[in-house]
Amino acid sequence: MSNSPAAPVAPEPGSPHQELSRQPGLWELFLACSRVGLSGFGGVLPLLRHLLVEERRLMSGADFNALLGLCQFLPGSNVVNLAVCVGARFHGARGAIVATSGLLLGPFLVMMALATAYGVWGHLAVVQDMLRGIAAAGAGLLFATALKMARNVPERWIYLPFAALILVALVILRLPLPPLMLALLGMTGLIAYRRARRAAGLATTAKTDS
């Protein structure tokens, strides 16, 4: 959800970016993604970028940004979407499967181990107290993330009321999200579309005037 003014520029075909790309083997892809998945606490995305662009030099920063744009645009988990793109780019369907399972398998097994431990010791008062403390801190992290995201929203006086609207609709009215999301996205999307059109129209008028 990056709205930074310095939007990544698309690499031109046949540009020197291509000399960066080399073909990693399937096994290398799996291991690299596993390492990223297992070492990512609170955000895997920066690690994935570091591995692909800086450490292994499998793609250029511009290529990475272009793929990330798509992955953040579409719903679902950004990192899984990205793993699919990266894997598919190098080895087609097999690569997509290998990269995604590399990313998810290790952490999934860790989760299952923790789940089993929770099944055994979850009833203990001290465990419940610790988890409540983590939940309190985690809620704080979520609020801080929301604040950071809000700061990146352009023209906040128009758009942020919709953030409040969706919060009220979910917390107080308890509406189901899928229809709500589509309705609100229709509204905010239309506003953004019309404002962009008007801005483009004004720019053209200004150009003709001068």
Binding site: M1, N3, A146, M149, V153, A163, L185, I191, A192
Partner: peptide
């Protein structure tokens, strides 16, 4: 337009997540 439109809704959703977890 969709990307601009999604951003504020995501802010509201993540806020709601924090509220609900608390």
């Amino acid at each position: 337009a969709i990307q601009t439109g999604v951003a504020p809704l995501a802010v509201g959703l993540v806020c709601t997540s924090g509220w609900l977890i608390g």
